[in-house]
């Protein structure tokens, strides 16, 4: 058999899952869609002694509109988000990015929470949630209990998050978009569905005069986690989004906001070049949508 032996638990409720995790400390790992964890177990790179399968916990999946924004349960399948009409209407950036995640067969199983918790720097969802300034709801044993962590504070390093052992990501909340805002997503990968060499998720808001009021530019595959391009955002904020201003901000993102890694897939210089082009293109589209929306 491919994976090493483990004890298997299949709780029906969140409280039950938290209790099993608490009882086993760092030995136990939650299993969501298994599209990252099971490959690692098949290679025996991961050998959890205890597996806590979250797939029967119905309270963890679903999409609903709340007073503070769009709530997406951690166990909601990526494919369900991709097909959801509320997501398409209220979080178009998320809808636009979904088809770039792997292939339909993977998205049929893979979950939103699993991707966010896995914290792969090349993953789309962490960057999208960062651009949308989403809040991640986490539950764990007392005394911490329930915590709400902004996406900007959730990612702490390469495959590392603010989640403590025994804690579960339960929900992500995407705040309602301000009027006159627009968003766009783009990435470059060798084949459709492959992990991106670089990618960009942006959301901008404009004022009555069409000037940029706020810009959130999140980059993927160019650092240890999703990277918020603050210097580029500062360069465009308060400006009229002319082609020149957009190009300048995109060049700032590529030159000053990142220190991209080089690997067999792409050199640092190539990643900077991709970021300059992708930020320019996504900002152009996002401002156009903000003006029309």
């Amino acid at each position: 058999m491919k994976p090493a032996p483990f004890a298997y638990h299949r709780p029906e409720t969140l409280d039950e899952a938290l209790a099993v995790l608490a009882a086993h400390g760092g030995e136990a790992k939650p299993l969501a869609g298994g599209q990252s964890l099971i490959p690692a177990m098949n290679f025996r790179l991961a050998r959890p002694a205890v597996l806590v399968d979250l797939n029967r916990i119905t309270e963890l999946s679903g999409i609903r509109q709340g007073g503070d924004g769009l709530h997406i349960g951690a166990m909601t399948r990526q494919r369900a988000v991709e097909r959801d009409p509320i997501v398409a209407r209220d979080a178009p950036l998320l809808a636009e990015a979904m088809p770039f995640i792997a292939h339909p067969q993977i998205r049929n199983r893979g979950t939103v929470g699993g991707s966010l918790a896995h914290a792969d720097p090349a993953a789309e969802l962490p960057a999208v949630m960062l651009a949308l300034d989403a809040k991640l709801q986490v539950r764990g044993p007392a005394p911490r209990g329930v915590r709400s962590i902004p996406a900007g504070e959730f990612y702490t390093g390469l495959f590392e998050t603010a989640l403590a052992p025994g804690e579960l990501l339960v929900d992500v909340t995407v705040p309602r978009a301000a009027p006159r805002s627009g968003s766009a997503f783009a990435e470059v990968a060798r084949r459709h569905g492959d992990y991106a060499l670089a990618g960009v998720a942006v959301r901008v808001t404009v004022d009555d005069a069409g000037r940029c009021r706020e810009a959130r530019i999140a980059l993927l595959s160019v650092g240890d986690g999703p990277v918020l391009a603050r210097k580029a955002a500062k360069a465009i904020t308060g400006e009229s989004p002319t082609p020149e201003a957009i190009r300048e901000a995109a060049d700032v993102a590529a030159a000053k906001d990142i220190d991209p890694p080089g690997d067999i897939h792409a050199s640092p210089a190539y990643r900077r070049q991709l970021v300059a082009v992708l930020v320019r293109r996504t900002l152009e589209r996002a401002f156009e949508r903000a003006r029309n929306g």
């Binding site: 491919k2 298997y8 299949r10 298994g34 599209q35 099971i38 490959p39 098949n42 290679f43 399968d53 797939n55 494919r79 292939h103 339909p104 067969q105 993977i106 049929n108 199983r109």
Partner: peptide, 27 residues
């Protein structure tokens, strides 16, 4: 491949295409 890349193991689970190498039989 048995790690989700090649697609040779694709089956339908409740009508949806999935990788059978990335699902435990008990699931």
């Amino acid at each position: 491949c048995e790690h989700g890349v090649c697609g040779a193991c694709t089956v339908l689970l409740d009508g949806e295409a999935v990788r059978s190498c990335l699902i435990l039989a008990v699931q």
